[in-house]
């Protein structure tokens, strides 16, 4: 269990993390979500005792990181796969890490085997591809067989094969009953891997809930209805105090959208009670991206200008694209 209480980090006038409190529950994959520059990496560095909080604190199973005697046996982390000396072999890198926590040499071979690097273990780490470096980083995180794992943007820049590998690997770790905290700005990725979400924007906590709950609460759901008696049904729905809007789908068809707290069951029964023919009745769930944009709104650090004012010839970048884009500042 990781508990943060009023965690704050200031760099001069800039507030990177602002009074952040959350807890990471044991035995689950928790997604740490936020746009670039939201303070995810800074928070993770504070969890690991690398950066000192300006105020507040963060504890691992009730202890400060600096008080841990063999930290690798309690919490493993991969913050940056490039934190390896390029001229040192993977085996040597893991060997010094193992020695630092008095771990048996057999652990090195075990984690190399787990991540599939045994064959190239004696090659210099500088020659590894990004995917291999990422695997080495994960091997380092698993070296002490810790119950808690921290990954910062683990799928960043990986090819599809690497992404699937990491995703499956993390689910396997959680299935073994480990606590996993994984940060990402890729919301779709989090929807696939994380059960719980901690969402931050501009260093502040925006939400902490289960992934499904977050999407539900943030974006609500919309029911899409097509009917030959559309106007009649629209009036009927409005009589029920429901919010509706009618849109022209194409030249021939109009579509009715029902927003708010109502199920498809209720809408269907209402239509049946007045013998209204329906051609379509579908529930449209908001995506995580939509939910995220709605909730973080003004928390995205650098808003792109709207298309109209953009530089001629340069396609405008929307805030949504920025939030879902592949780069993360470190």
């Amino acid at each position: 269990m990781i508990e943060a209480q009023g965690l704050t980090k200031r760099y001069g006038a800039t507030v990177a993390v602002d009074n952040l409190s959350f807890e990471v529950k044991p035995g689950k994959v928790t997604g740490f979500l936020g746009p670039n520059g939201a303070g995810k990496s800074t928070t993770m560095r504070m969890i690991l005792g690398l950066d000192t909080p300006t105020s507040g604190d963060v504890r691992i199973d009730g202890k400060r990181y600096r008080d841990l005697r063999q930290p690798l046996t309690e919490i493993g982390a991969l913050l940056d796969a490039k934190w390896v000396h390029p001229n040192r072999s993977a085996r040597a890198h893991l060997s010094w890490m193992a020695a630092s926590n008095k771990l048996p040499k057999a652990n090195v071979d075990r984690v190399l085997e787990m991540v599939g690097l045994t064959e190239v273990a004696n090659k210099r780490a500088g020659a590894y591809s990004l995917g291999m470096s990422q695997r080495l980083g994960i091997a380092g995180a698993l070296l002490g067989d810790p119950r808690i794992l921290l990954f910062d943007e683990p799928v960043n820049g990986l090819d599809p094969e690497g992404i699937v590998w990491i995703r499956t690997f993390m689910q396997r770790l959680a299935a073994e009953g480990r606590t996993v905290l994984v940060s990402s700005h890729l919301l779709s990725e989090m929807a696939l891997t994380a059960e719980e979400l901690i969402v931050i924007g501009r260093g502040r906590l925006i939400a902490q809930s289960s992934t499904a709950e977050f999407v539900d609460r943030a974006s609500g759901s919309t029911i899409r209805v097509r009917s030959p008696q559309l106007d009649q049904f629209d009036t009927l729905l409005q009589q029920q105090q429901l919010i509706t809007r009618v849109e022209q789908a194409d030249d021939h068809t109009k579509v009715l959208y029902v927003d708010g707290n109502v199920t498809t069951d209720q809408v269907g029964e209402l239509a049946a009670s007045q013998q209204i023919v329906l051609h379509e009745l579908t529930l449209q769930r908001g995506s995580l991206e939509q939910a995220f944009m709605q909730m973080t709104g003004d928390s995205v650090q650098y808003h792109a200008q709207d298309g109209a004012q953009a530089v001629p010839g340069v396609p405008p970048v929307s805030a949504a694209e920025m939030a879902a884009g592949p780069q993360e500042d470190n």
Binding site: R45, L48, G49, L50, Y65, R66, D67, L68, P71, L72, A77, L79, D80, K82, W83, V84, H85, M97, S100, N101, G140
Partner: peptide, 11 residues
């Protein structure tokens, strides 16, 4: 960046 890995292993 191995100094961070070092401090992480030995706070």
């Amino acid at each position: 960046g191995t100094i961070r890995t070092s401090f992480q292993a030995v706070p």
